[in-house]
Design a protein around this nucleic acid. Structure first.
Lengths: 350, 350
DNA sequence: CTGAAAGCGCTAACAA
DNA sequence: TTGTTAGCGCTTTCAG
């Protein structure tokens, strides 16, 4: 017997194709009794909808946009690349994606950009922006208009509708803590924690997780307060130099934000990479090189390709009210050492 | 302007839909000149085929099968679960998957099972079996019949057509080596390497990678030859006890194969888990529990869900002669500590 | 070697 | 509230 189609379903339920369609798409204008009749028939004949046929008939393109910070760093570049790479294959799935940028540290501008979206014909948005009341409200507005929203990389815990696609930052911090403890061997000393800003929730969560683990090793390792560099090289330098002079000297550095370049330059100049365990976030071509030359010991990362594809899948599922495979959409906290570093890909096909 | 369709293409090339179709599917019976005319038109109007429409019209289900070893261990269970989980969502994509089992260590039986496939109507096969001449030949026979084949978890380097979907075992070994060196701190001693059998190419590759790294630490760590347990608890016990008596005592154990249960029992009985760094492979509910209680220090794993979905995508791409995203199909060597262990999923939807 | 026409499973006017 | 009908982009007989 062949897989049942809408026709079979219509016959089984004793209604027309149009009614079947209405029920399948939970459209209004069908008597409750009829709805139930169709639903029973669905179960009875074990009907599963052919979504590709549906999409074909709809002749609809799903339009999703990524709203990214407008400053450029390695990580954002990576994301953009990955979106571009994915976009090509999305043609097969009736999905077009675009990118817009907004100054991440100006919540009003971000919200403004988000509000602009509504007037265009967009079906879903992936938003990467620090959690703020403005952004949260803008998300709510988008959702009110029926747009699908996911929180991309940056959690938006107060906008419940927006699924978070990104790593568990506390777990990431714990992982760094454990590696730091292990990699420093039996050495005594302090561990320096550097970040661009502690304003962001992500940083706070990472710090929390990190401390949870470091506490267990407190007899051996002392942890510095989080030092904020504000993305400024001079400031980083000052902080590190100061830390170098303190007693006991530090044995490890946790680079908590993903823009490690400037800090690493300072570390280079001081020539302390070799005797210090340095752990950072995100696998970029820069951190790759640092893993290879040994100046960074480990990197905690999330698979950017996965991040992008997952966001799109979740958005599409939300838009079409379809279920998605939760386990497939969970982003892992990945540990990258020089030894398990995946090769960088340049060609996209096989 | 709308995305061009076959109709537009037919018009642009000055041929009929049928001819366009023949060219698109590289079917015989079209004059070379006509073929070229169509292909030029494809470029000119920038035509991209809508595969879902094609599939719909074909009314074809892609049938793929996983050929798995017929012994049961945690890892195989995991794979089966993941296949079952994935299967449900594959209905949307006109793909049905099934599983057949064969005694992995009997190449003739495996080959026999593979030959049986041909007579059924199967489009693609994912094969998990040690590399042997029999299996290699059977793969070649399948391919000769036009079946798509991927080597699943076990590399088949001599059957070139069969894409390998699995981790780079040498990199996995190197990663274990690095972790072993780091986690043992500054301690001196020997590291025991235990495996079910060194017959398998995978074990050999892991060992190779492991040694590459351990060599750098040879002043501190000595590595035992690979001890083969043949999956036998008594044998494991004997080996470990013997190793315990030797001088210097061992500081670490590398469990190279994925069936760690029996060995861990012996280790438990001897009560040596705490002072020993133990690293194994694959994240199963068993190794999870061991990570949590601290008796295993790290696990190297490949994402089984990824493994399964990737195999299916690659098979489908091969069957339909479509490109696939290489970077998406690369399986990572994942390091799992207690801190970055993903939660186990029981519900499949969201 | 090429074309015309019917149909894949579903949706969306338009009628009733 | 329900049904009829003409497609969506592509494939596939069956004629020519």
């Amino acid at each position: 017997m062949d897989k049942p189609t809408t026709k079979d379903l219509a016959k089984a339920a004793g209604v027309s194709l149009a009614t079947v369609d209405r029920v399948l798409n939970t459209r209004a204008g069908v008597r409750q009794a009829t709805v139930e009749r169709v639903q029973r028939a669905i179960r009875e004949i074990n009907f599963v909808r052919d979504m590709s046929a549906a999409n074909l008939a709809r002749k609809k393109e799903y339009k999703v946009v990524f709203l990214l910070p407008d400053h450029d760093d390695e990580f954002i570049d990576l994301i953009q690349n990955e979106i571009a790479k994915t976009a090509r294959f999305l043609a097969y799935e009736r999905t077009v994606v675009s990118i817009i940028r907004a100054p991440a540290n100006d919540p009003h501008r971000v919200a403004e950009q988000m509000d602009n979206l509504s007037i265009n014909e967009i079906d879903g948005v992936a938003i990467m922006a620090p959690e703020t009341p403005q952004v949260r409200d803008a998300i709510l507005r988008l959702e009110a208009q029926g747009l699908a929203v996911v929180a991309f990389v940056s959690h938006q815990p107060n906008a419940e509708g927006a699924n978070y696609v990104g790593i568990n930052n506390e777990a990431a911090g714990r992982t760094v803590g454990q590696l730091m403890a292990r990699f420093t061997g039996m050495r005594q000393g302090t561990v320096l924690v550097l970040t661009e800003t502690m304003q962001s929730r992500d940083s706070q969560e990472r710090r929390l997780g990190f401390d949870t683990i470091m506490e267990k090793y407190s007899s051996r390792l002392k942890v510095s307060p989080s030092m904020e560099t504000y993305g400024d090289a001079l400031r980083s330098e000052k902080i590190i130099k100061m830390a170098l002079q303190s007693q006991p000297p530090f044995v490890g550095i946790y680079l908590m934000n993903h823009d490690v370049r400037k800090t690493m330059q300072v570390i280079d100049e001081l020539g302390i990479a070799q005797q210090t365990i340095i752990i950072g976030h995100e696998l970029t071509s820069y951190t790759r090189a640092r893993l290879v030359d040994g100046s960074i010991d480990a990197v905690i990362t999330q698979d950017v390709g996965h991040l992008v594809r997952s966001s799109i899948r979740v958005l599409r599922a939300k838009i079409t009210h379809m279920p998605s495979v939760a386990s497939q959409e969970r982003i892992r906290v990945e540990i990258i050492l020089r030894e398990n570093m995946p090769e960088e890909f340049h060609s996209e096909n096989m």
